[in-house]
Design a protein around this nucleic acid. Structure first.
Lengths: 217, 217
DNA sequence: CAAAAATTCACTACTAGTAGGTATTTTATT
DNA sequence: AATAAAATACCTACTAGTAGTGAATTTTTG
């Protein structure tokens, strides 16, 4: 089986070297070169057969995104992954628009890196959890704080969920009763039980809860 | 090597069946059961050794997110992946908050599914490209149709917007009046004008409009 | 089977919201 | 200054939702 030929781009020699060692330990990849910036990437691929570029985002002469865009123009078949310290959403989005094949944080483990490389070499995309979390504006469970905004989970019965969804569809209690063949007073009972359980005092409160907990789209 | 035991949850039998066949063709996974909704997931895992739940998002009795939350409480070791048609950012975010291990569109290929399953079974997370693209608010090059369901834009006055936001915060007309130093009857007038303008007939309708048009977060 | 949970229904009472109409004052625009 | 748009305010009337309590029945669970 032919090894995937990787070009490393990083302005920190130590990082590049250790990455090269790590990758060369994998038996389906080989690092065929390391360069220090985007310009060198472009000139390297002119004269060498490269399958995948694994690049840092921040580089002195030409950064990873700029490099991606230019590489895409002349060598659309070459895969490009960014390996970076930055988690800024704006930057991640730029990279995605530029057509990046993968985006990872530098704190990943060997195994994950291998998976990521395989996936991208295979024509798929790869984005690490931290990237997705940042885009979703969800605090990274590993990195930070602890409590999240969703609040505790309160168990609702199937019937309650059903009725809540109908309430949110703006049906009146009478209409709900007709729809599911129960008495209007029963609907009101469920309604009150729901509000009491969830600690809200109106249909709006129910809707907010439902939205936060994915009970409705 | 022990196979990873997978439980499928999907309310469409055809989907579940074909998925089961597909997965059973992989030699490191086996489908040990298929169920139709979230409740059945919860009862199934009570009596069976399940390593990974591969679930649809939209299910009649209990949807994928709700299921995730409840499963996390009692069986934190079980991996959960959502396989769905929905690409709505809000839903994806809910799923992430709920602690989902993977999120994929239903249009993926076998190979990608296998990668995803391996990755998650291995303790990592997996998110398909469409998911990340949606979160980044980048139009998916593959899917990208264009128009979305936002509907026409109706001009609201600043005061109306202000009052609508207060309504959505679940303040009563009296409270709103007190807050912004006008008469309760005036608040009611704005309220009615809003509903008439937007063609809705309740505060819930107002909230839905506000959500669709980004007037509230 | 027995206990617990869920679902069902009814009664009363109160209140906030919905619906319609009308009218004055203030602010913005030409 | 004149007109249009927005914001203000009140009236009546009706209705749907909110709140408390109590209880019977069915389903689920141990």
């Amino acid at each position: 089986m032919k090894k995937t030929r990787i070009l490393l781009a990083d302005d920190h020699p130590i990082v590049a070297e250790s990455l090269a060692i790590l990758i060369n330990m994998m038996d389906d990849f080989e690092v065929i070169g390391t360069v220090n910036n985007g310009w060198e990437v472009l000139s390297f691929v002119e004269t060498n057969e490269v399958d995948l570029v694994l690049s840092d985002l921040h580089m002195p002469v030409m950064n990873g995104i700029e490099t991606t865009i230019r590489l895409r123009e002349k060598f659309p078949h070459i895969k490009i992954m960014l390996l970076t310290m930055s988690e800024e959403a704006a930057i991640i989005k730029e990279a995605l628009v530029a057509g990046i094949d993968g985006y990872m944080m530098k704190n990943i483990e060997k195994k994950e890196l291998q998976n990521a490389l395989r996936q991208v070499a295979n024509g798929q995309k790869y984005y690490s959890q931290a990237v997705v979390m940042r885009l979703a504006e969800v605090p990274n469970p590993a990195t930070a704080s602890g409590k999240d905004e969703i609040g505790e989970h309160i168990p609702l019965t199937p019937r309650e969920i059903e009725i809540m969804q109908l309430i949110i569809q703006e049906l009146t209690s009478a209409e709900i009763a007709e729809r599911i063949f129960i008495s209007p007073t029963t609907v009101d009972t469920h309604r009150r039980n729901l509000m009491k359980k969830l600690g809200v005092s109106s249909a709006l409160g129910l809707m907010k809860y439902a939205l936060r907990h994915g009970l409705v789209k």
